[in-house]
Design a protein around this nucleic acid. Structure first.
Lengths: 327, 327
DNA sequence: GACAACATGTCAACCGGTTGACATGTTTAA
DNA sequence: TTAAACATGTCAACCGGTTGACATGTTGTC
């Protein structure tokens, strides 16, 4: 009953609070969870005791019982990238506002890491996962009965995918280069073996090129690819890179070769994240609505978590063409 | 005893595995934790049962009992920043390699968010926290009996702080500008009210300036500050920005005013993160050893977690001057 | 042949909350 | 006056693992 405080050495638990406040364990729990009848006087007493003892309810114990952790797992290649950095920032932000915490997993695009993260997240009883990484199939195979949302990645037949309107983005980018008078336009993208809606950027590129009687030609990003492109295509006058980092490498190489942008070569990227806009404002790009993507992804995940159904699988959000100095 | 599989609807638990394998709960636990005597035959049986049922041990239950979660909390302003993005990537990476998971908290530099995150992390029974955000005092006040490490931030008297050698970095940067013949050098930094070792960058700047009979003048970053600097100092010929993003804004403004860099104005930044180097390679900067900082921070945290003592409080890692086109 | 080491089982307490059932007493409203 | 609503307590089961104590039986070895 008495305040036997004086630097508690062990963790304070609910029992201790009950003793301090002179009430029962059940009453404290009632105060904590706002259930049943509680008088203001008792509520105050309990809160004071909690304050005095510096009590922090053990979420682990709570989670175990209620069978819910309020944790969401995020699996993405890396935070060390302007687009993902911004996306993850918003995902965390929105989740936090809705009472969820976030376990961060940097898969580095490696299948083995992704697999072990998935396993780890299941052991940790996360309430759901948002992933934007690697191959279809892995998650499908393990078939966790877990709420799941993909960002720019197909995870399985029935998991919702949120992405920007990649086809429209690819169309806008290609069309701009053509409108600016480019004749020999090349597209550079990531590995097309990944099953991602981002491949639509290339599809749109090819369609628009053909519509304009141009021959589409794509390169997959990799070691020395950009040099190769310049070497193999001396008459190149337009490049559509499927992300801004690639575009920046293109610009660097062009500079090295004294190719003037935009006079001799026009370049457009994709993503338009805040950091890229800040550090490389001269680059024209297709901007993804990152915050909206994050918003929708969390919303769809929470729907699943709460058992609501939603039949729409593919969600596309509008992109914005940002024209700058490279076109 | 029999495989009563056929799509398990509820969560598989240890009991189910025991039944499937035809052994006792204790034996399964022994296999799982590698304790006591277990024959190869039994071990195999148990593993097969786990596979068959697609069993994932409930870490929550385990954590509750062993009183350890293997989770580390990370409190940083944002992942949407080249430096923090890279730092957080490495922190997660290293933690993962050592068997720890990471709860991500974007404080946005807000005191209230930081406070509520701290509270949340304690409820979730994290094993420790690495923070690189905001004011001293908050964490100290709450005085959590929690392993704690700061990165570039003093958190309390006795919490270790890891940072780059800020004084040396500031010295190198300023000296470079002076060596290049700058006479009127201005420093731009973040709020000096934050108690962070990063303030040493400015101290070094001031010391070097005085040593060279120059008058040191610092501005705090904020709305329109850069314009103000140019307006108030028409004869300015050198700027040392305390991070690369600020430096990039300086470059942008200089371009707008047709001030030629480096001919009329030399600029040097601080951080040298991968993304900045990639997008803005022409910027001279002081590069922090991000991976080494992350490495050391995790190491120091684990030491605390494991009850080992370490009396050294301030850790400084060497920086590297990267000279490029802006100086 | 005996004793140590190996192999496994049963049982129950425990980690720190949550919850339902039930009891008792006090207010409040009709 | 009396029933409903309010306020709190006790008790025990439960969430899903872990662990120690103790029992029993099998091998291996000197």
């Amino acid at each position: 009953m008495k305040n036997t405080n004086e630097n508690v050495n062990q963790k304070v638990k609910l029992d201790d609070v009950a003793n301090e406040a002179g009430v029962s364990k059940t009453t404290v729990s009632r105060v904590l969870n706002n259930r049943g009848y509680i008088s203001e006087k008792t509520r105050k007493k309990v809160h004071e005791a909690m304050e005095l003892l510096n009590y922090h309810p053990n979420e682990i114990a709570r989670s175990l019982f209620i069978n819910k952790t309020f944790i969401i797992g995020l699996i993405f290649p890396t935070t060390n990238n302007p687009f993902y950095g911004q996306l993850i920032f918003h995902l965390e932000n929105i989740s936090e506002a809705l009472g969820y915490k976030v376990l961060l997993c940097n898969s580095e695009g490696r299948e083995d890491k992704e697999k072990s993260y998935l396993e780890m997240l299941q052991r940790h009883q996360v309430d759901g996962i948002i992933a934007g990484s690697h191959n279809r199939g892995i998650l499908e195979y393990d078939n966790p009965q877990l709420p799941l949302v993909g960002i720019d990645r197909y995870l399985s037949e029935n998991t919702p995918v949120v992405s920007s309107d990649n086809y429209d983005g690819g169309k806008k980018a290609t069309q701009l280069l053509i409108d600016k008078g480019c004749k020999k336009i090349i597209h550079i993208n990531g590995s097309p073996s990944l099953e991602t809606p981002a491949n639509l950027r290339r599809e749109a590129y090819e369609d628009v090129m053909k519509e304009n009687q141009c021959y589409p030609q794509s390169y997959v990003i990799g070691e020395n690819v950009i040099e190769t492109i310049f070497n193999e295509n001396p008459n190149i006058d337009g490049i559509f890179a499927s992300d801004d980092l690639i575009a920046s490498s293109v610009m660097k190489e062009a500079k090295r070769r004294n190719i003037n942008i935009p006079a001799d070569l026009k370049v457009i990227g994709y993503d338009g994240s805040e950091i890229t806009r800040m550090l490389l404002p001269e680059l024209s790009t297709i901007q993804q609505p990152v915050k909206e993507i994050a918003d929708l992804a969390v919303q769809l995940l929470l729907k699943q978590i709460n058992g609501e159904t939603e039949s729409k699988i593919e969600w596309k959000l509008p992109v914005k063409l940002i024209e700058s100095e490279t076109t």
